[in-house]
């Protein structure tokens, strides 16, 4: 039994690009390998969009920030958004024509449905052989579980015995994933849902997890599902939020008070709730046909001013 030599660790830790340089910079390179990254948001914020984009981006060679790997997508929310993945793959292919001239990126994405938490554990045990002897030339380096919350939210009741059984499962799943991540250098991404936060703001102090005092999405106060036990199981947690902002004088559409229309824009942000290697920060992003992209706030502000 010998300690690992930290000097021989690759520096920085290999990361998987998200396919957008701005979000990559925000995440200091992308999604780290050897660790579990969690994406938390309410539905419709772009968790799945970002996941699909990661499935494709992982195939890029390491010189372009990818992992030169194939990827596995385990989904518990049905149906699998195949049309969207196809759409993304077309634009992905056209932006890297030389890399995917002869092969289809979709060939390197494996998809498997999940029906329960026990099923997930079973699948994880079975992919060990798959990880050791990859069927393609590209080893599997990215596992995405979308979503972990859906597996747990139906099956367990809110009583002590069920909660205990649930948290034992959390730690089993997490330690299996971490073992695989470490042994095979995987990047693991799990998505999680939110629940409405009910309670006084004072009561939050003890339970507060992460950088933000309170999480708001769509004007509601929310907190990540699955409680504090699961929060102990992930290495980094990112929160995607969506909030409507009334466009003020920049657009010239100021509310006149007589019931006129108000221009409303949805602003999406990604926040670091906690991560061992990232500071407390946030980044605005948009979802377009070609995928999820970061927005440089200062640049858009400058643009707005220029238009004015």
């Amino acid at each position: 039994m010998n300690p690992e030599n930290l000097l021989q660790h690759p520096l920085p830790t290999p990361k998987c690009t998200t396919g957008c340089p701005l979000i990559d910079r925000f995440l200091s390179g992308g999604v780290p390998t050897n660790s579990i990254t969690e994406l938390v948001s309410e539905s419709g914020c772009g968790k799945t969009q970002l996941c699909l984009q990661l499935l494709l981006a992982a195939q890029l060679p390491t010189t372009l920030g990818g992992l030169a790997s194939s990827s596995l997508y385990l989904h518990s929310e049905f149906p699998f958004p195949f049309r969207r993945l196809h759409q993304l793959s077309l634009s992905f292919r056209s932006s890297h024509p030389s890399l995917f001239a002869s092969s289809d990126p979709l060939d390197r994405i494996f998809v498997h449905p999940l029906h329960s938490a026990e099923h997930l554990l079973d699948v994880l045990r079975r992919i060990d052989r798959f990880l050791e002897h990859p069927p393609t030339l590209f080893p599997l380096k990215l596992i995405i579980i979308d979503s972990i919350a859906a597996l747990f939210r139906s099956e367990f009741e809110n009583k002590p015995s069920d909660l205990k059984r649930r948290s034992v499962l959390f730690f089993k799943i997490s330690s299996k994933l971490k073992l695989q991540a470490k042994t095979f250098g995987l990047a693991v991404v799990v998505t999680n849902q939110v629940v409405d936060f009910v309670g006084s703001s004072d009561g939050m102090n003890g339970l507060r997890v992460g950088n933000l005092g309170s999480l708001y999405s769509s004007g509601r106060r929310v907190c990540p599902a699955l409680g504090i036990s699961w929060a102990n199981c992930v290495n980094s947690r990112l929160f995607l939020s969506r909030n409507e902002e009334v466009l003020g004088d920049e657009s010239g559409l100021v509310e006149t008070g007589s019931g006129d229309f108000v221009a409303v824009q949805t602003k999406r942000h990604i926040h670091v709730l906690f991560a061992p290697h990232l500071p407390n920060s946030s980044c605005e992003y948009i979802i377009v046909r070609e995928g999820v992209f970061g927005v440089e706030r200062t640049a858009t502000d400058l643009q707005k001013r220029a238009i004015k």
Partner: peptide, 16 residues
């Protein structure tokens, strides 16, 4: 120092 990491949150770049 001896660092025994059971959770995988130890990031070499952060140590640096």
């Amino acid at each position: 120092a001896i660092y025994i990491d059971t959770e995988g949150s130890f990031m070499v770049e952060r140590v640096l």
